[in-house]
Structures are given as structure tokens and as C-alpha cells.
């Protein structure tokens, strides 16, 4: 059929028949098969496709019904597109590892920058935790991570930079090693690094039943927009205070990671 055979011991050559359906081509590339259906994907993550596939912004009139049922954060709609048609489409994200996950009548919360694409049978909602998105329902989604993803069972404390997401456990909270961090000496240690700071004094803690997803580096992927929340009191990230604001404490310079309080407060001033 074709005169261009696979080049010897070279890489495998794919065509629409040999590309996998809804599976990874290699660690960094995922192939989605569309048969008249639709997929939501983040803008600019499609690298190639066979067949006839149309990409439409979420604001497209014909997609109104679909968006109403499976897309619940209208304010960052401009980052998402809907792919529809039939054919096979390759997704990739800056040569990061990509993997697909199946949700069966479940829920999963994931860092916004890591989510690449999902089936419309899932509903995408903003998480109450700023910077995260929650998927609810049954279906498949594709997420990228810096290095392979490992799955852990709670109870577990994880490094903030390694956290990709969590499923079914509704208890993400901060954990500080207070014994090490409090007092004037602890404050000096944390601020100057003198006397030994491990850099691991602050963690996220998960308890209860569920799964926690971690990436195998502490290099975060670029933040993805999650949209803004209504400016109501009581809404995290949306209240009267600025982003990351915690009332009267958050004034002046941004906090260093792991820093518990200012020196003045430690001295009782």
C-alpha cells in the first residue's frame, strides 16, 4: 500500500488503523478515538489528528447544552475547547508524562494545570480548594504529570509540590511540624536556613478512604486557570481579601513556603 516501510530498527510507524483507541501511544502521547462523540480538551494540546475533527470554543452556540451539563466553571471557559467529529487525535503536553484515568461514578480533584482532556460524561467543577478542579461522574480523563504518577492510600502526608490530585477523600488539609518550627529559634531557622531546615516542615495531610495521586518530582507544572469564584464572603479565594488572603494576617510581603509567622509575632509584638 505504501512504499515507506518502517525504517529498519527505527521507531514504530503509526497510521489510523494501528493507533490505539483511547490509550497511550507512548509515555508522552495519548490517542483519543472519536466516533461522532465529543471530548473536552485544554486549548493547544492537540498535536495531530486523522479524520474530520472540529475544534470549537466553549462559547460556541451549538455546544450550549453540552456545556450546561458537563462544564461548571464558566469563567475559565476560554481555556477549553470541544473536539467533535470522527477520527483519531493525538494529545500531548510539553513532553510531560500523560496518563488516562477511568472514573466510575466517582469524584477526583486535580491540579488545574495537570488536566488535559475529559469525556463529556464527566462534569468538571471548580474545587473549593483554590487552583484545583473536580471531576464528577463516570468516564475517562487524561492528565499530565512531571514524571510518572504514583497512587497512595491515606492516611498520608504529602509534599505540596508533589501533589497532583486526590480521589474520594474529602480531607485535604495543611500540616506543619510545629515542634520544629515554633519559637524564636524555629523562626530564625526557617527564615535564614541556619541550623538546618529540611524544607519539609509543611505538608498536606489526607485521612480517610480514597486515593492520593503524586507526581515523582517536586517541579510543578504551570498553573492552569480555574476561573474566579464569586466575590462572596465565606468563599475561599473569593472573599473580600486578596488571593491567598487570610484576614488581617496577610499583609505586606508574600509568605515564604514553610514560614509560620512573622518574627514580630514570635516576639509577641
Amino acid at each position: 500500500m505504501s512504499t515507506y516501510a518502517s525504517p529498519g530498527a527505527g521507531p514504530a510507524v503509526h497510521d489510523p488503523m494501528t493507533l490505539p483507541a483511547d490509550d497511550n501511544v507512548n509515555k508522552y502521547t495519548f490517542c483519543v478515538e472519536l466516533k461522532g462523540g465529543q471530548w473536552f480538551l485544554q486549548k493547544g494540546k492537540m498535536i495531530a489528528y486523522y479524520g474530520t475533527i472540529e475544534f470549537n470554543g466553549i462559547g460556541h452556540g451549538r455546544l450550549d447544552r453540552l456545556v450546561r451539563t458537563s462544564f461548571h466553571s464558566p469563567l475559565h471557559a476560554s481555556d477549553w475547547v470541544v473536539a467533535g467529529g470522527s477520527g483519531k487525535m493525538l494529545l500531548a503536553d510539553r513532553a510531560f508524562d500523560v496518563n488516562s484515568y477511568d472514573l466510575d461514578d466517582g469524584n477526583l480533584t486535580i491540579r488545574a494545570g495537570n488536566l488535559l482532556a475529559f469525556q463529556p460524561s464527566l462534569a468538571l467543577k471548580q474545587s473549593i480548594v483554590p487552583g484545583f478542579l473536580t471531576l464528577i461522574g463516570t468516564g475517562k480523563f487524561v492528565a499530565a504529570s512531571n514524571g510518572p504518577v504514583v497512587f497512595m492510600e491515606p492516611p498520608i502526608r504529602v509534599d505540596p509540590q508533589a501533589l497532583v490530585g486526590w480521589a474520594d477523600c474529602p480531607s485535604p488539609c495543611h500540616h506543619y511540624d510545629h515542634g520544629y518550627m515554633t519559637g524564636v529559634l524555629g523562626g530564625l531557622r526557617a527564615m535564614t536556613g541556619l541550623g538546618g531546615v529540611s524544607g519539609e516542615e509543611h505538608q498536606f495531610e489526607f485521612v480517610g478512604a480514597g486515593t492520593v495521586l503524586l507526581q515523582s518530582t517536586e517541579t510543578l507544572m504551570a498553573e492552569g486557570a480555574t476561573g474566579v469564584v464569586p466575590p462572596e464572603p465565606g468563599v475561599p479565594g473569593g472573599g473580600g481579601t486578596g488571593p491567598g488572603g487570610h484576614g488581617p494576617q496577610s499583609s505586606g510581603t508574600p509568605r515564604l513556603p514553610g514560614q509560620l509567622g512573622d518574627l514580630q509575632r514570635r516576639f509577641g509584638l
Partner: peptide, 22 residues
């Protein structure tokens, strides 16, 4: 290439569409 390249065959029956950046 940035990440291992995927080699895709183009045939008379199946044209291929590629993102310029990839």
C-alpha cells in the same frame, strides 16, 4: 525532538492534520 517523536503515516486514504508547533 522535545520528547520522543511519534511517526505517523500519511496515505492517500488518510490525510493527516498536524499542529504547527508539534
Amino acid at each position: 525532538s522535545d520528547g520522543p517523536a511519534v511517526v505517523l503515516r500519511v496515505g492517500p486514504q488518510y490525510p493527516l492534520i498536524v499542529d504547527p508547533g508539534a
